[in-house]
Design a protein around this nucleic acid. Structure first.
Lengths: 350, 350
DNA sequence: AACACAGCGGCAACCGGTTCCCGTCCGGAG
DNA sequence: CTCCGGACGGGAACCGGTTGCCGCTGTGTT
């Protein structure tokens, strides 16, 4: 028996009180720290606390209305690099502010999301942060709005982080980044290098992130009076495998292009491998660009030209604005900027 | 006012009871589902519940001793691919089992870890899972053991997932994977290809994961009667930048080697870039291998030969054994196997 | 018609904390 | 010596739930 106390398992505040010969109120006051307590009593209580290795039950405190509320965030897949960076920002800022962080991955299943939000309402979470893009359908807006109302009426707050907003009137905080602007700048860079047939490896066509990036691709063309061949717009999802498959297929079909812009770096990675497999060199035969600036983009060969997105900052802002909101402040809507980072995977045409 | 009810904000069980004209106990019983309640009463209660959009406060239930306890996991950095996969396994299994998941990143700061564990004791978490390797010092063992005892006395459980065990007698569950075995097999593969001077890009020398992999490296040499040049054992950390720097330095010093084994795929990625920068081809001039089999390993060029570690499974097992433990079962210690996956980055010597 | 019993629902105690309110004891001022 | 007020600590109500126990009612037996 190396344990110093009688090892009572979890001990309550009344156990401590009994051992110190005082009432539970006094123990609570000593631990609270504000109420005046004589130093003799304080010492006895602290001693009992140490002897029993007592820690107040955070859940009981929560019921009594003290204690910091928790925060929750929901994402599709924690192993995705951009998701992970947002999660990092959220967790980090929450910790800095003294909040605990609940996490839920949905694996793309809407049902999981709805159930989890309901649980968070029961937990009386301070805020629920929905992280990462989504399809923007009427059902989505309807469902999400219901979640927002339901959380709001329970005193919580819904935050959309990199997700389609719901239109006016919904009790939500929205933090977005400029998908279209980033894609515009990136594609403009590619076009400036003289490329005229630029293959676009996009995402699902109802996915807002994919839509934004595709709009940027088109806008950059139009700004120079170009009208891109619709056959060059391919759709898949945001995975490495999708990039690989799409690229492989495009090559097999003999599609003509001198540059490839992928909707994400993951897609670009898959595409790059497919290009290599086909015996093509990058950027010698084909130029390639990605989107997201995940850490690995530097270590692809050639190092990938891409668009940097301040994912971590996005997460941090999400918790800050959700928590710092004053009752009378309006629902916020932030839009963060992006910028292209030029590396070695895009070369002049010819 | 589209809201259908009078929108009471959070409503209590007594509000529901009042509206349904019954007592709080009855509402509780209707919601509980087991106790016999007449169908007329049940209908009235359910109606009130729906009208008020009532959800029972999970924290209050927890205090009353019902409701599923939460689970917590702690890791250094959620953006690391292998960490992320363990986190994924943990979260997924927890959800399957109906538990909520708290997360904390430490950024390598021991103090954060200790504070968080204390909070989890206050939360009465079912289990706290410490994820990922660590330095194995006397202080580490002492501190971790204290955490384990303290959690155990509060009815929680400490789980070490991919972390150094504490020796006999500590109330911990340990889930490890075979670092040494994997490295042994990998290095054996490299040696079989005829390489004799194999550079090892290791981690911190007091880090158990790094130690295990280094032991494997040495053992594989000794098994064939080889005695590796100590100058070929380099130490850094597990980051991409460390790999880049170490490789760059080794090349600058004119160290001689025909193959490189990196302690992680991240390190290998950095090393690969450094090799490319020096104008060397892989595996033409130098062979290269990694460890972890992160998804990106496939998309490096050449595709990286590496060791697969069942990270997700590791996380899943951590929660399963922590939760499924019966009071009389002994403290478990699992060791999962690894296997090498051969791709294109290792070629025969000469 | 009296009785037993099952079905149903309310009261009150409890979970583990916090805090309002009040009583006691002390010292210092008049 | 009395009176006053501030410092200190205890009792009890409360937070929002659950549940043991008991009493009421209605129906089916004998």
């Amino acid at each position: 028996m190396t344990r110093k106390s009688e090892d009572a398992g979890r001990s309550t505040i009344r156990d401590v009180a009994a051992r110190a010969g005082v009432s539970a109120s006094t123990v609570s006051r000593v631990l609270g720290g504000v109420y005046p307590v004589s130093s003799a009593t304080r010492t006895r209580v602290m001693r009992a606390v140490r002897d029993l290795d007592y820690v107040a039950d955070a859940r009981a405190k929560a019921v009594a209305g003290v204690g910091t509320p928790t925060l929750a965030f929901v994402l599709e897949d924690i192993t995705g690099p951009s998701f992970a960076h947002m999660a990092y920002g959220v967790e980090r800022e929450a910790r800095r502010l003294g909040h605990l962080c609940l996490v839920c991955t949905t694996e793309g299943d809407v049902q999981h999301e709805v159930e989890f939000v309901e649980m968070m309402r029961a937990q009386r979470a301070a805020a629920v942060i929905l992280v990462g893009g989504s399809a923007d359908t009427p059902e989505y807006r309807e469902r999400t709005r219901r979640m927002a109302d339901s959380l709001a009426s329970a005193g919580s707050r819904l935050v959309l982080c990199g997700r389609p907003p719901l239109g006016p009137g919904a009790p939500v905080t929205v933090i977005e980044y400029d998908n279209e602007g980033g894609a515009y700048a990136l594609v403009a860079h590619v076009l400036t290098q003289g490329h005229r047939r630029v293959l676009f490896l996009g995402g699902a066509s109802d996915h807002t992130t994919a839509q934004g990036r595709e709009r940027g691709y088109l806008a950059a063309h139009r700004a120079r009076g170009l009208d891109p061949d619709p056959a060059l717009l391919l759709h898949g999802d945001f995975t490495r495998d999708s990039g690989h498959r799409l690229m492989h297929e495009a090559l097999r079909q003999g599609l003509e292009f001198t540059a490839v812009v992928a909707a994400t770096d993951m897609v670009a990675a898959g595409a790059l491998t497919a290009l290599h497999e086909a015996g093509l060199t990058v950027p010698g035969d084909v130029s390639l660009a990605g989107y997201d600036d995940i850490p690995f983009a530097r270590d692809l060969h050639p190092a990938l030209t891409t668009v940097h997105v301040p994912y971590e900052e996005l997460g941090r802002l999400a918790v800050r604005t959700a928590l710092g909101r004053t009752p009378e402040s309006p629902d916020e809507h932030l839009l963060l900027g992006t910028h292209v980072v030029v590396r070695d995977s895009v070369a002049p045409a010819e």
